[in-house]
Design a protein around this nucleic acid. Structure first.
Lengths: 342, 342
DNA sequence: TAGGCCCTGGACAACGTTGTCAAGAGGATG
DNA sequence: CATCCTCTTGACAACGTTGTCCAGGGCCTA
């Protein structure tokens, strides 16, 4: 078996190349390229011959080679926390739509809230030479991105800020949203309000906690020990936290849930209780209207769209200083946040 | 400006290449390649020098070039209907996990239930020379895939069968699930049962309808005009259909909802009614437990995982005849399906 | 000390495409 | 009829990597 034959085994199952098409059509290689790319300067007759050869052989341009030659991959990378989380579905979809409008494909991966995995993914995407990168960071130090950014990979951070690198960011107003939600509970007569949030190393978690504290301080309420719980959003952990806050001689009369996962568990815990407990949750949830859950809603689609649009503006040459956009949140009263203290 | 300089503008922002690293480390190109790929045959001292050069220059291997040379991209494509649909989130996540375990990245796109867009996406992925393809088809004719499959791109269809091509498929038992759900309603005394499903060109929609008819026939019930409605799952359409079935002199006493989107709207319509209406929905929904919605649950993660595992088995060389796997569904009684007829 | 072997390292071609450039055909113009 | 121009076409190099193969140096053995 000669070398050529051995090689061909490793190739894409012997796909036809432009050379094969050219041979079959009896034209030059470059002419095929021109036809494939709809470049001008090919007579209709030649074009037809080439097109026939393409169809007969089932030729499909190899974009890997094209990318190598052109330097642009027409693809962007999206690193998020968990594709299965209902918050990120609409976000990815929005990113995808913008990418599509710019003729780019979307490569995405989940970091599972693990900084190492985030870095691994980001670097894999950079090795693919994606044109741009949208990252929902898990870690808080992104200096590993410096060579990439310097090399011209446009980058936008979303939902949480980047650590130690100067890049575009698109965030939701976690602080303001949480403050408004807690103030809403206070306005309905609550003073003993619990806060259950995500792990403190996550920026949005601490921002929302800051909003909680701000609202309490504005109302002159002293936050007592045991009213605040930050940690994993595993149902078990949240359940325990909620039950503790709702027990004892002086339980809280209302809960503020730091994100959609917390809200879901909180709703379940509250449903098991006799005494009504007011609840406001951060992030909207499907069917929350039917369950009457008051939420602070952030528009995941808008976040994704904004981020992607920023990215493509960069790719189209915008070179202003990195910007930080903060999108507003909306309070949607549906009942659970308007219950008076029991 | 000479040619070299002009060229470099179009390159990846002048990223260092192995050649640059080799020059800086004072070694040959191939030696750098060996270090980067952890190939044997490099003295520790040489390796150290190369590694230093890599770090100093911020070199990152260009996988496009690598792919071109090696013929494998270590990436798979996933074409689904809508990334934002809560059914597909866990499915993509499961696919991603399997891909990750095999060192592959995931490129995905939404067809938005448009056959043309599906084809466009699939072909774009093939042009990228993804190693494999997982497709949740929108169209019903996939002969356009023939050259790709012949060229060795492993392909698995999911959730719906492929049209006119012989490939692996992983489906849920739509027929059996719907039949069980409808039989459940019949067992609780219902005879006038409405069915609201997705567009009839979607395979799962007609399979579920077939299950409905089978259950009705088994019970000796004649399905009356107006009890069945197939069409878009837009809330407007579903709402109208549901309201019609629930109105008039002889309204249905129970509804079977053909998928998660239909269920959500049906729940809303029923909630507005005075008379209770029984409901069983296909697909589980978040918080359905709290709302007491009885569902036929299909395990989206399992579907995704199974499909991805099939795919990688193919990529690892399995060449048995294409298989068709059908995963079972589970009925989860939560109250809405156990209501007696009003 | 000569001969053989192993280990390290590098030169070179190839992967499939696109940019550059030049050549040839054919028509228009003087 | 000569010249110039336009239009189409193809030869060739280059993109950055990896597989193959060969060369040179060091070590062991006879």
């Amino acid at each position: 078996m000669d070398r050529t034959a051995r090689h061909s085994e490793t190739r894409y199952g012997n796909r036809p190349t432009m050379k094969d098409v050219a041979a079959r059509a009896g034209v030059g290689l470059k002419t095929v390229s021109r036809v494939v790319n709809s470049e001008p300067g090919v007579t209709p007759d030649t074009e037809r011959r080439v097109q026939e050869a393409i169809d007969a052989l089932g030729f499909r341009r190899n974009d890997s080679a094209r990318v190598l030659r052109k330097g642009r991959t027409a693809s962007i990378g999206l690193v998020l926390e968990d594709l299965a989380d209902p918050f990120y579905g609409p976000l990815s979809r929005a990113v995808e739509e913008v990418a599509r409008a710019h003729g780019a494909l979307l490569i995405n991966g989940s970091s599972a809230e693990d900084p190492e995995r985030e870095q691994e993914l980001v670097l894999a995407l950079c090795a693919r030479r994606v044109d741009g990168l949208i990252v929902i960071p898990a870690g808080d130090d992104h200096r590993y991105l410096e060579p990439e950014i310097k090399a011209g990979i446009a980058t936008v951070f979303v939902d949480r800020p980047a650590g130690h690198v100067d890049v575009d960011m698109v965030l939701s107003d976690s602080f303001g949203g949480a403050r408004e939600g807690v103030a809403h509970l206070i306005a309905h007569g609550h003073r003993r309000i619990g806060f259950i949030g995500d792990q403190p190393r996550i920026h949005t978690a601490t921002e929302r906690l800051r909003g909680y504290h701000a609202a309490m301080r504005d109302a002159g309420i002293t936050v007592e020990d045991g009213w605040v719980s930050l940690g994993s959003t595993e149902p078990e952990r949240v359940r325990t936290a909620a039950e503790e806050m709702l027990s004892g001689p002086e339980p809280v009369t209302a809960l503020f849930a730091g994100n959609n996962r917390v809200t879901v568990t909180a709703v379940r815990v509250i449903a098991e209780r006799e005494r009504p407990v007011a609840l406001v949750g951060f992030d909207d949830i499907e069917l929350a209207d039917l369950l009457g859950i008051t939420v602070i809603s952030q528009d995941a689609s808008a976040v994704g769209r904004t981020a992607a649009e920023h990215l493509f503006r960069r790719l189209d040459g915008a070179d202003h200083a990195p910007a930080r956009v903060e999108l507003p949140t909306t309070l949607i009263p549906r009942g659970s946040g308007e219950l008076p203290p029991a």
